[in-house]
Design a protein around this nucleic acid. Structure first.
Length: 892
RNA sequence: GGGCAUAUAUGUCAAUUGGUAGACAGCCUCCCUUACAAGGAGGAAGUUGGAGGUUCGAGUCCUUCUAUGCCCACCA
């Protein structure tokens, strides 16, 4: 078989995914063991508007590694894909498109036409990210693909809403909310982010104290009261001034009134502990309708809430006719100018501050009072907290940083605003009759029954996107509230692990816990693995605005999917890490190494076949009930008894089994980087650098040393040696497969005698694929510490000799003789492996003795066990030159 | 303001429960040896951010300081 000398990743990627998918390998049904233990993961649904970024690829790789391994172990696995309708960002996207293409607004075309457009858009572009995901090679079951707005998931949403409403946990109420004037919708606190404003200003405005009350005030300066504000325009909605009751400066003013400039209103001066005496002037203007703190204070003091703004960020008529219709920033400038004209502008200071902005469109948020739908979170919160306290559930990996964050957040959890003033999403199942009375029901028909009339109009608002995603762990498995038990639900819920990013802990993880406990009376998943963040090469967060993002698809093209997956898994320690192309390059090289090692084995594979028994691996198959004896002989009885093999074979078999154990153990602990590291070094160092070199002569047909007596015909021994190396290689490919699916499948298919017999017993009827091969777990009885330490000694000897050769600059072609003084045991080991030592050290002879007896002109070295070695240099090096070289080194 | 991380070779990162500080990339020397130059052999490179402490023994535990990052929070 002719293989090119370089691995072509694209070639391998082209074929296999399609075959895997079409053969049903990704579905749990491929497992024909009805009683097999299950393993399930639901993908955190990416936004329908999104495109793949490194964070996705990291998460997906991790989930796929976990899934592929479990599948190979015989578990009935389900890795379920899907996407999220992402209300705000999708609506934003389509609105923009509408503007660009037709110069229309959503309002121009109406709700129905608009949502139709979004659906069109979804069908056209929604597959983008799914196709990108396919490229990653992840083994998700596409037949179960879900979308948060699928019929069944929508029914689930409606049922959950109705249930919560009926038990009094959903209510409507006017509260102060975050409002995005651009998207014209309310936002939850979690959808608001902070933006630093370095050039902010703090305005000092003077409010005249009511004339009739000035008499009571002693000082001349007290004809006005100065307040400091960053938002002068909101003064039009002020309904009080507050000072701290302990502030001596203002004690005489409490209870007095000021004439609010630019309005005809008088407002009181009140006292409240909240006021910080140190900040500004110590007096604060209070605008209950436009600031969350002022809102709270307003409630405490029964202040009127005066709304002076429209929903688009302009001032309304309450602001007065001079301001009505003015944009908030224009209004700000006008207020300042008017104050200046009145002589009431004391000063303007520079003031760095933090502004709340819309997470999606980055518009500065308005806080205003608005009627919204809310979910009471207290009971669900308590359930989740109790579970955490009592059972440390959910268990986070890494544990330390995330556990406290989760608990703290829950403890301070407030009610959740779930309505959004959008058209894209699940429309709230509430209807109003002509009197404005509300009826919440699963359908209009049922609402009509309740109302006794069909003259009803549905609530315009839709639900927060997270109101559907919090059901994801069970809604994707068929739960819709009407149907509460399905086969999938029974088998795959709770899922085993959720793999996601830190910023999603509150938005999603915590809410999923609450939803699953509440609605299906189960935990949504066992473990939570929180990935680190992929940073750019300067250690900065990747972001669209900075343009420093690394596109996974480009990396796939350049280095191959498998190399990228290895890089990601190898970096998955739970900590953030900086992206480095060099890292991928080294795994690309690793892929090439695997390719070439296989190539070498195939060049010498005539007569050989993959046969686990040849290296003592018993085909004992495990399933969830126990051990299925399957053509299993005692490895120590077999005609290839491991005990009778050479030390180098015992050694590599030991290393293989140890590596298998390590990999399994690491993956059980989510220590992906450990697994990658073990595999990399086992394959490259142990298998390629040493084992292949050790057995090369034995398995090769040729030798360039024509005088060698070892040149053999194809004997049975040679065929067995070939069988062993091919089998070890095949086991290695299985271990590597979860990380490097394409390469390993490509090569596995080329190995001799790879067929469905190598599958885990659960998949014997499927077409041959490494995907379903039995995953090596490592056999303790094949771990041979003695062989390992003896080989270690041999390697050390060879390395030492090579070291001397390099240092003395002995030409590779020059043969040397090696004198060794060692104890009997060591001598015995070296004698038994003389041929291999001679070959790998390029030596002619080894002279073993209890003590060294060598010419003076010898290079010497000592091994860690005390054995001494010496290499006579006479005739090998030019002593004159060597002296010069050493002198030069000293000079340096 | 509170919380949580991080600081280890030139760079990016590892290092189970405290037990000889490693990998990859880069760098230096030699080698296109018939699996692989995306390779092979060898090598140099670290007072583990600073200062204390506990211990036979500390990168690891404690105290403190410094720097950086992230999250949360209502300072106008």
């Amino acid at each position: 078989m002719e293989l090119s000398t370089q691995y072509n990743a694209k070639e391998a990627e082209k074929n296999h995914y399609k075959r895997w998918e079409e053969s049903g390998f990704f579905t749990p049904e491929i497992n024909n063991d009805e009683n097999a233990e299950t393993y399930s993961i639901v993908i955190p649904p990416p936004n329908v508007t999104g495109s793949l970024h490194m964070g996705h690829s990291l998460q997906h790789t991790i989930m796929d590694v976990l899934t592929r391994r479990k599948r190979m172990l015989g578990f009935r696995t389900l890795f379920l894909p899907g996407i999220d309708h992402a209300g705000i960002s999708t609506q934003l996207m389509v609105t923009r498109q509408l503007k660009d293409e037709e110069n229309k607004t959503p309002q121009d075309i109406g709700r129905e036409a608009f949502t139709e457009k979004v659906w069109e858009w979804k069908h056209k572009y929604g597959d983008t990210i799914l196709n990108q995901i396919r490229r990653e090679g992840i083994s998700v079951d596409w037949s179960r693909e879900a979308f948060t707005m699928d019929e069944s998931l929508s029914i689930a949403v409606r049922n959950v809403f109705v249930a919560l409403y009926e038990e009094g946990n959903i209510y409507r109420g006017a509260r102060i909310v975050n409002w995005c004037p651009n998207d014209k919708t309310v936002l939850s606190d979690l959808e608001v982010e902070d933006k630093e404003k370095k050039d902010g200003k703090l305005y000092y405005l003077q409010y005249p104290i009511k004339e009739s009350e000035q008499l009571a005030v002693s000082s001349e300066r007290r004809k006005t009261l100065t307040v400091a504000t960053t938002r002068p325009e909101t003064m039009l909605g002020d309904t009080a001034i507050a000072v701290n009751p302990n502030d001596k400066r203002f004690r005489d003013l409490i209870g007095k009134t000021v004439d609010l400039p630019l309005t005809n209103r008088e407002i009181p001066i009140i006292a409240d502990e909240y006021v910080d005496m140190e900040f500004g002037t110590g007096a604060v203007k209070i605008t209950p309708a436009h600031d969350p703190n002022d809102y709270e204070m307003g409630l405490r003091h029964n202040l009127p809430q005066l709304n002076v703004m429209n929903l688009d960020g302009t001032m309304n008529e309450e602001a007065g006719k001079d301001f009505n219709g003015l944009d908030r920033y224009k209004a700000r400038r006008k207020v300042v100018a008017d104050f200046e004209e009145l002589g009431l502008l004391e000063k303007i200071d520079d003031h760095e501050m933090v502004l709340p902005v819309c997470e999606r469109c980055k518009t500065v948020i308005e806080t205003l009072i608005s009627e919204q739908w809310w979910v009471k979170m207290d009971k669900m919160r308590d359930m989740a907290l109790e579970l955490k306290r009592e059972t440390d559930y959910p268990r986070f990996t890494p544990h330390n940083p995330h556990t406290k964050v989760y608990t703290d957040w829950l403890e301070n959890l407030r009610d959740w605003t779930i309505s959004r003033q959008l058209w894209w999403g699940h429309q709230i199942p509430a209807w109003y009759d002509e009197q404005g009375k509300v009826y919440v029901a699963k359908s209009k028909k049922e609402a009509a029954k309740q109302a006794g009339t069909s003259a009803l109009t549905q609530e315009e608002d839709v639900l927060d996107t997270w109101f559907s995603s919090w059901l994801w762990s069970f809604s994707t498995l068929g739960w819709d509230g009407d149907t509460t038990s399905t086969k999938d639900l029974k088998k795959f819920h709770p899922t085993n692990v959720i793999v996601t990013a830190r910023e999603i802990i509150f938005l999603w993880v915590s809410r999923m816990v609450m939803a699953a406990l509440k609605f299906v009376d189960e935990r949504p998943f066992d473990d939570v693995y929180i990935t680190g963040t992929v940073l750019d090469e300067n250690g900065l967060r990747m972001s669209k605005s900075k343009g420093n993002g690394v596109d996974p698809l480009e990396v796939f093209d350049k280095y191959g999917v498998d190399a990228t997956r290895m890089t990601l898994a190898g970096s998955a320690t739970g900590a953030n890490f900086a992206w480095r192309d060099e890292k991928v390059e080294s795994y690309r090289n690793f892929a090439n190494k695997i390719w070439n090692a296989t190539r070498f084995c195939l060049m010498n594979a005539e007569g050989a076949k993959v046969d686990p028994e040849s290296i003592g691996i018993c085909r004992k198959q495990h399933d969830s009930i126990g051990v299925i004896e399957d053509n299993c002989r005692n490895p120590h009885d077999s005609k290839w008894a491991v005990e009778d093999l050479s030390i180098s074979n015992k050694w590599i078999i030991s290393r293989l089994n140890k590596t298998a154990k390590d990999v399994n153990e690491a993956l059980d602990k989510y220590a992906f980087h450990v697994a990658v590291d073990k595999l990399y070094h086992f394959f490259w160092d142990d298998f390629c650098d040493w084992y292949i070199e050790l057995v090369k002569d034995e398995i090769s047909d040729f030798s360039n040393d024509t005088e060698s007596k070892d040149q053999k015909p194809k004997t049975e021994d040679q065929i067995l040696a070939r069988t062993r190396i091919v089998t070890i290689l095949e086991q290695s490919l299985r271990l590597l497969h979860p990380f490097m699916p394409y390469l390993t499948e490509e090569l596995w298919q080329k190995l001799p005698n790879t067929n469905a017999d190598l599958h885990n017993v659960a998949y014997r009827s499927a077409d041959a694929t490494i995907m379903l091969a039995d995953f090596p777990v490592g056999d303790d009885s094949l771990i041979d510490e003695k062989a390992e330490s003896e080989m270690q000694l041999i390697f050390e000897l060879i390395t030492k000799i090579r070291n001397i050769r390099a240092e003395m600059q002995i030409k590779p072609s020059d043969k040397i003789s090696v004198h060794i003084a060692a104890n009997d045991k060591t001598q015995k080991i070296f004698t038994e492996n003389e041929a291999q030592i001679l070959k790998l050290a390029r030596a002619d002879e080894i002279i073993l003795a209890g003590e060294l007896d060598v010419p003076e002109a010898s290079a010497k070295g000592v091994l860690t066990n005390g054995a001494e070695i010496a290499i006579p240099l006479e005739g090998l090096i030019d002593f004159e030159k060597e002296r010069d070289r050493l002198q030069n080194q000293i000079n340096k």
